[in-house]
């Protein structure tokens, strides 16, 4: 047992060091994550002079800064059909269910191929912009080979399909447009 004493001691030292470091850095990490998320959210709608009102964990309302009018909303959407599992994204729609933008939050797609769904890697995701999420127009949202208007990512069919499914999924749950009536926002 003697030769194991020092490695065990070292393991404890390593563990304590990391624990302490994490304790020190946790607020910073939280802050960075929040800042990153906010920037991502504003990138989804691409509108100016608007603010976001958090409705719940998965929905943000987009309101005009001038008259608090509801301009649309941003919803989370998820799919488990990505090439490497779960993909989650924000989908922004205006009051007429026209897509304002889609941004991937988390994914584990293959670097160099499937990661093109990330706006920082390529602007592939911009194809969804301007298409309608209405049930009647849903066929537009399919890949071109399935009769839709989305060009798939070369070499990443599964990822492309998953994104299409994700965007269509974002519509489920609220079949009726949430309405253009302004809610009583906090201002």
């Amino acid at each position: 047992m003697k030769p194991l004493f020092r490695p065990v001691l070292l393991a404890m030292v390593c563990g304590l060091t990391l624990g302490y470091l994490f304790y020190m850095l946790a607020p910073h990490i939280h802050e960075s994550r929040e800042a990153y998320e906010t920037a991502q959210l504003h990138a989804v709608h691409g509108l100016t002079h608007v603010y976001l009102e958090k409705q719940n964990d998965s929905t943000y309302l987009i309101r005009s800064m001038t008259d608090d009018k509801l301009l649309g909303q941003i919803r989370t959407a998820e799919t488990a059909t990505g090439y490497n599992g779960r993909i989650s994204a924000w989908v922004g729609v205006d009051n007429d269910k026209k897509i304002l933008g889609v941004r991937v939050r988390e994914h584990r797609e293959t670097p160099g191929l499937g990661d093109k769904i990330d706006r920082q890697v390529s602007n592939w995701i911009d194809q969804f912009k301007g298409l309608s999420l209405k049930k009647s127009d849903e066929s537009d949202l399919l890949l071109r080979r399935n009769g839709g208007r989305i060009d798939q990512i070369t070499g990443a069919t599964i990822t492309s399909r998953a994104m299409v499914r994700l965007v269509i999924n974002s519509n489920a749950g609220s079949n009726e447009p949430s309405g253009g009536l302004p809610r009583n926002g906090k201002g």
Partner: peptide, 25 residues
């Protein structure tokens, strides 16, 4: 070997945490 791996893993985690705090992107 396990001792070296342990040190390396600790160093990697340190860098990982620092990156999360300041280079989140």
């Amino acid at each position: 070997i396990p001792v070296q791996i342990m040190v390396i893993a600790t160093a990697v985690t340190v860098v990982d945490l620092v990156l999360q705090a300041w280079y989140f992107e």
